[in-house]
Design a binder for these strands. Structure first.
Lengths: 260, 260
DNA sequence: GAGGTTTTTTTCGTTTTTGTTCGTTTTTCT
DNA sequence: AGAAAAACGAACAAAAACGAAAAAAACCTC
């Protein structure tokens, strides 16, 4: 029996049960574990299944496409990045957090900081920080973008212009090999650029997946960023450029260690 | 079996029951307590659950679902008021919703309206309307007031000045026998007054409990309101005054009927 | 049926996950 | 308040799962 048949059946079983196990499938088809592993890897690569330890699950796109999916996507690495980022954020300062699941993770880690003034154009960040008592939260105005809870547009930009931040924590959609920060949404570009302009220091939080993507609009260059937090070593031209630009790079392995 | 499978099921159980226990889950999955603890820690780290001694709960503020559920208590009268208010709101207009549980109830009833431009300084209203696709939501900037999710201060006022609304739906902390709208928070006064000034028509939503309270700051007079929605007949001097002012009064009994 | 290709199995070192133990913290009982 | 019980997290060991690569089997085509 060729893998094509198995693939079809595996998907069917997965759709019925919501999940499949390597062991179970091996038994079901009377083949080796390794064979099933290869099948699942193939299916995962095609995006038809989501590989997990011990088996595979239906890709979450079935239920909640987009934001939720991105949020869960390597959440652990993001949490680690966020932790090491939060560790370098002192108390008693003003800071900005923009749109993005990574900055939301940072917000979660900031709940125990004291006396911060946090300005954000991200509804989720505001919701997260509403829990704590220890910091003042200011929300910029703007048009609500349902996809990610972002507040965008003229109103957002104008509000930001009224502040001067000690620190800006930003995310981006992509990061290319020239060290340019890119974004999908033209509207968000203006907001991000205004933030950079209004803040004394800048932290960029971007997980490794951002390095494999591209996006149409350019926000800024890494040279304008003080510290980059990421979860895997940078590909080749970038480490040298960052050194040149004096941009610190903090790589956080999944477990939470920090290295230069 | 991998943690990925358990995580999904744990969240499902948590959403159904509102909480999960370490012991219960360990038994359910046939694994050690320690394993479940690790799972719960992971989920808490991702912000998907809130860890508590002995188990975990749905995160309190983040989740729209949890919030929705918590608001059900004593909301019957409010929902009735909100329904009859929403019935008098046409489609295709711009409107403002300010702070208050009553206006939140109205927001909930507006989810099936079409082509509205809703501006609000209430995070909860924004969260509620984020669910629907049918209307544009604009959030004013402002300082986040944790007690009620309100956005207040100079930023809020300034944003509102940039709009002109077809209709404003407002709440208030108290309503006295002179027909004056009162509020506890001085900051909110400025916002409310600005709203009245910028809108062509005004609906006030105030349940009967507001009539028994007092508050220090005066927002405006009922004479400036076009329609008052409430859930019990007004005490004595007010019906006459309202008639004089040409302020409509819509009294909704708990069951949902509408009377003049 | 020989030769080449594809697929599967086998093997093995590595990584991930789970279980166990133990000292500490939190909760509950008195 | 103080003691007992329950829950917790860290650390380490055991078990399970993993991926890569070589060997074997199955399947072509000529």
């Amino acid at each position: 029996m060729s893998h094509a048949f198995r693939h079809r059946d595996i998907l069917e079983i997965a759709r019925k049960n919501g999940k499949v196990t390597v062991e179970g499938l091996a038994q079901h088809f009377g083949v080796t574990l390794q064979t099933i592993r290869r099948d699942l890897s193939d299916l995962a690569e095609e995006g038809r299944l989501e590989r997990v330890h011990g088996g595979a699950m239906l890709p979450s796109s079935t239920s909640n496409i987009g934001y939720e999916q991105r949020r869960v996507l390597n959440a652990k690495a993001k949490a680690a990045m966020a932790k090491s980022c939060a560790n370098r954020i002192p108390n008693n300062i003003s800071l900005f957090l923009n749109i993005g699941t990574s900055t939301e993770a940072v917000a979660r880690e900031l709940r125990n900081h004291r006396n911060l003034l946090v300005v954000t154009n991200n509804m989720n960040v505001a919701n997260i920080l509403a829990e704590t008592q220890e910091c003042e939260v200011v929300v910029t105005g703007g048009n609500l973008r349902r996809a990610d809870g972002g507040l965008v547009g003229k109103l957002a930009t104008e509000t930001i212009l009224q502040f001067k931040f000690d620190l800006a924590i930003i995310g981006c959609s992509a990061l290319d090999e020239d060290g340019d920060l890119l974004d999908f949404d033209i509207q968000e570009i203006g907001v991000s650029q205004t933030i950079l302009q209004q803040s004394r220091r800048t932290f960029l939080v971007a997980d490794a997946s951002k390095l494999k993507r591209s996006a149409p609009a350019r926000i800024a260059s890494l040279s304008e960023v003080d510290t980059l937090f990421t979860d895997a070593p940078l590909p080749d031209p970038l480490p040298r450029k960052c050194a040149e630009w004096k941009t610190d790079v903090v790589v956080t392995s999944g477990a939470g260690q920090t290295a230069l």
